[in-house]
Design a protein around this nucleic acid. Structure first.
Lengths: 150, 150
DNA sequence: GGTCTATACTTGCAAATTGCAAGTAAATAT
DNA sequence: ATATTTACTTGCAATTTGCAAGTATAGACC
């Protein structure tokens, strides 16, 4: 059982990744997977800075800076200097960006609901509980083992 | 609860993705994330063709062809024309490639065991069962909903 | 057998993505 | 007042990407 651990996670993660990829056509825009993740994080975090989102997504900040620029250019994201510290740029979604993010979210949840629709109520609860448990423990374990993140 | 579904999956998937990224230094090689996935799939599938692995990973076949070439060049993968059909190339890991794949696998499983070490036996079983359940249902649901895969 | 289509893979671009090094500009330390 | 740190941006140069167009083999049809 132990030896299949990675495999089952790998499979799930890949499938979920495909889902993310497939949900990039939204609100009349055809954005990239990376852009979709950025919109998601800007929406989720409370007025994040460029650096915050870059770190969340594990992207190099110079790369991220340019990705933000392109999202600003197509009108989905806006950058505002923080009043308290004008080196910092606060990111937010434009109305159109919010629309796209919501549309993607809707698609994702539709699919997930569809997946859950074949489960019993007990099974659904178990799955949700299990993922929560995993998330909590993975967060805790960040520094355990040999974290090569540096 | 329903509206957090995507979020908890997204978090888990991202963390697992980071883990995959962090496990790319192995056996004296510093390979890319994509290369790591390719080694994994070649190892897992039984003498797959180029096309099979490309499809599994959702990569364009021309891109994949080149990725295989680079893995052959650094001596981790070998390509053999299939005896039955010489258009097809069968992929396999070289001894060194197998070593790298095993090393990566070991690192991944070490981390996962570490995550699981903070759980009770019941919790562990629940998590494994939940992921299996998800995988089974996601596979089933491939064509349900509106699959925009085309 | 000979031609025609289909399949498996490869190569030629040209565009997009990446990250390091080096920059700017603002905040903080001394 | 100057030096250092921080947040972000730009200049490259390398890598990765995918479409279009190629080669080579296999199978279909006559």
């Amino acid at each position: 059982m132990e030896q299949n651990l990675r495999e089952i996670f790998q499979m799930f993660s890949r499938r979920f990744g495909f889902l993310n990829k497939d949900c990039c056509q939204a609100g009349g825009h055809n954005i990239s997977l990376v852009q979709s993740h950025i919109l998601y994080e800007i929406d989720r975090q409370h007025h994040p800075s460029i650096q915050q989102v870059a770190e969340t997504l594990g992207t190099d900040i110079t790369t991220f800076s340019r990705q933000v620029q392109s999202l600003v250019k197509i009108g989905l994201v806006s950058k505002t200097p923080a009043p308290s510290d004008r080196r910092i740029f606060i990111l937010s979604l434009t109305a159109e960006g919010k629309e796209v993010a919501d549309d993607i979210d809707k698609q994702m949840n539709q699919f997930l609901e569809c997946v859950f629709s074949n489960m019993s109520q007990d099974e659904r609860e178990m799955v949700v509980q299990a993922i929560h448990l995993l998330n909590r423990n993975m967060e805790k374990t960040n520094k355990c083992c040999t974290t090569p993140i540096g």
